[in-house]
């Protein structure tokens, strides 16, 4: 492999080091180098949101970030959402509200939703639909996803 670069970063709270080619995206690094396959690829050009991760506090599509850009950053992926005690309320709400069918978009939706509710715990339906417009789902028609997000708001306040 020509010119591998050493990158030190933090993923889901864990200091992590990896080697990658500069041309590899963060998505490729997560999936192929680190074996963290929870983050999904749907389009590889930033238009479906399946690869959404939190990158220094903002959600981004990890297909449009280079792995080498992760140096000294804080990254949260779907693997970092649940705790040893159990599911995050957003995950529990998606499960209970049947907000997933095939499930391929689900990790991206959950990461994006958690980022929204961490900032705006009272987001209304319109705001939820706006925030999630970058996450495509082809199975559900979004109805049950929006309901799940509203339910997660209640769960997080309880």
């Amino acid at each position: 492999m020509p010119g591998l670069v050493h990158v030190s970063t933090t993923i889901n709270g864990n200091p992590t080091d990896f080697l990658c080619e500069p041309r590899q995206s963060l998505l490729e690094v997560l999936r192929d180098v680190l074996g963290m396959t929870g983050t999904k690829e749907g389009c590889n050009d930033g238009n479906c949101g399946a690869c959404t991760v939190v990158f220094d506090g903002r959600i981004v599509t990890s297909c449009l970030v280079l792995g080498v850009e992760a140096q000294d950053k804080e990254i949260t992926t779907i693997e970092g959402v649940a705790t040893p005690e159990g599911l995050h309320p957003v995950q529990q709400a998606f499960l209970e509200n049947a907000a997933l069918q095939c499930g391929i978009c689900t990790p991206g939706f959950i990461v994006a939703t958690k980022a929204l509710l961490d900032r705006e715990p009272d987001a209304d339906e319109g705001r939820i639909r706006h925030w999630l417009a970058g996450n495509l789902c082809r199975c559900t028609g979004y109805d049950k996803i929006v309901r799940a997000v509203l339910d997660a708001e209640d769960k997080m306040k309880a």
Binding site: T37, G38, K40, V81, Q91, A98, L100
Partner: peptide, 23 residues
């Protein structure tokens, strides 16, 4: 009745193995 799906926890935690995840 509206039961929880058996594969649900795997799918909301990113653990479910899709085709591209094969190693």
């Amino acid at each position: 009745k509206r039961h929880l799906r058996p594969d649900g926890v795997d799918k909301v935690t990113g653990r479910a193995q899709y085709g591209a995840d094969v190693q």
